[in-house]
């Protein structure tokens, strides 16, 4: 996987019914992306949080590879820095269709809602 254990690590996973789950993750402050995003001011790239949702979906479904076919809407509601954000929850509500999965996901913690994602992925 592109980011698991480089950008984020999974601490715990609580499965809901169907294809829903809550992943408790932490950001890895020494990920190389922060050297360039931005020099002297580490800010989590929004796209890395979309990839985090995708990789949690791969864990949840067991799919070896998934492609983000469509993003209906993905809102980045607050900036995130690995220096200030210790723990994050990735909540996933997905449904399987014949041509892939619809995925609704949120990244948040006790203080802040960071991202809301609504899209389609297929293997």
């Amino acid at each position: 996987m592109m980011l698991k254990d480089k950008y984020f690590k999974v601490n715990d996973c609580t499965k809901g019914e169907g294809l829903s789950a809550d992943y408790s993750i932490s950001l890895l402050e020494d990920c190389e992306v922060y050297a360039g995003h931005f020099p002297g001011e580490p800010i989590c790239p929004g796209v890395c949080n979309i990839q985090t949702v995708k990789e949690c979906m791969m864990l949840l479904t067991g799919e070896k590879s998934l492609s983000i076919r469509k993003v209906k809407r993905c809102r980045f509601k607050a900036l995130m820095s690995p220096q200030t954000v210790r723990q994050l929850n990735v909540h996933i509500d997905a449904a399987k269709h014949d041509d892939g999965y619809t995925v609704v996901a949120r990244i948040y913690n006790a203080e802040t809602d960071f991202m809301e994602f609504n899209g389609e992925m297929s293997s």
């Binding site: 800010i43 929004g46 983000i68 076919r69 469509k70 809407r73 993905c74 809102r75 980045f76």
Partner: peptide, 16 residues
């Protein structure tokens, strides 16, 4: 200037 993505809307992938 530093810019942040606020929203991705209607993304459609045709080929990788």
């Amino acid at each position: 200037p530093i810019g942040y993505i606020g929203e991705v809307k209607g993304f459609c992938l045709y080929m990788l």
